[in-house]
Design a protein around this nucleic acid. Structure first.
Length: 270
DNA sequence: CGCGACTCCTGCCGGC
DNA sequence: TGCCGGCAGGAGTCGC
């Protein structure tokens, strides 16, 4: 579910409910996520007050007490606010109860997500090798072009590499390549600076638009405030293999790149 | 050392 | 109707 726009939408939804609020109790029903939830997490956050809720790549960084709670939503994770006492269903693994009577509830059927802890001033190893934020000034076509020198992999897995730029997952990589008219199978190192400039622009435009619209709804995504995101109807290629291209009317092709399904239009993308 | 494959886990969908 | 294989929004890790 969560790509960068969904994570940013979640951040915006939950931040106003967390900032300035004190944690009364941490309830962990299932500790086994991608990595186990640290045993001492309750000691770190109970009785402490959230200050700032930040995002880096697809990680949410929630500053509280002497450090930050770091959460990643994986493929199926979701963070939302519920009233304290709301019965927990299957896969609703964690509640962070607040003095407001609300609780931040973490749900994740596949358990590919994570909930970790880091002390103030430390940089978590998971965050230490991340490339620039796609919507920052540090990211542009020149960055893509320079990173691509000597790369033999296909351009789609290349732009999904977090060391190159963060936050471009399978949906937005597919959509940005279509918008830029680039065949996702093309070798990354053999694409011109001009085309990378176009690609960078499209990545930024599409991500910014998706954030503005509250994230993509694929199945049941809702922001932290329970508002649904926008619909699949805005997608040109993702999930549309075999269907007709919205631009030229041709049949959309599908292939696998880096173990991820990739849909594209042979006529519109080269 | 770059790159592709494998892995974690549950749910769902299509085909037989 | 039911069972089974394959696939799903991520990304760390391993082995060639």
């Amino acid at each position: 579910m969560p790509e960068l726009p969904e994570v940013e939408t979640t951040r915006r939804g939950i931040a106003p409910h967390l900032e300035g609020r004190t944690v009364t109790q941490l309830i962990v029903r299932e500790r086994r996520l991608r990595w186990p939830i640290p045993e001492d997490l309750a000691i770190q956050i109970e009785g402490q007050t959230f200050t700032q809720i930040r995002r880096r790549a697809k990680y949410l960084l929630m500053d509280i007490g002497g450090g930050s709670l770091i959460s990643h939503l994986g493929m199926s994770g979701n963070l939302r606010l519920v009233s304290v006492g709301t019965p927990a269903l299957k896969h609703e693994h964690v509640d962070i109860e607040l003095d407001s009577g609300m609780a931040l509830r973490y749900t994740d059927p596949r358990r590919f997500g994570s909930m970790l802890w880091i002390k103030t001033g430390e940089v978590h190893p998971l965050l230490s090798r991340l490339g620039p934020e796609p919507l920052s000034d540090l990211f542009d076509g020149e960055r893509l072009y320079q990173c691509a020198r000597g790369k033999t992999s296909a351009v789609k897995p290349f732009i999904m590499d977090n060391a190159v730029v963060v936050g471009v997952g399978n949906i937005y990589a597919s959509e940005a390549l279509f918008a830029a008219g680039i065949d996702p199978r093309r070798e990354a190192g053999r694409i011109s600076r001009t085309r990378y400039q176009r690609l960078a622009t499209e990545i930024q435009r599409i991500l910014a638009h998706a954030i503005e619209r509250g994230g993509t709804t694929l199945r049941d995504f809702t922001g932290g405030d329970g508002q649904p995101g926008y619909f699949q109807q805005e997608l040109f290629v993702y999930g549309r293999g075999g269907e007709l291209c919205k631009l030229c009317g041709g049949t959309l092709s599908e292939c696998r790149l880096g173990q991820r399904s990739s849909v594209f239009c042979r006529r519109c993308q080269s």
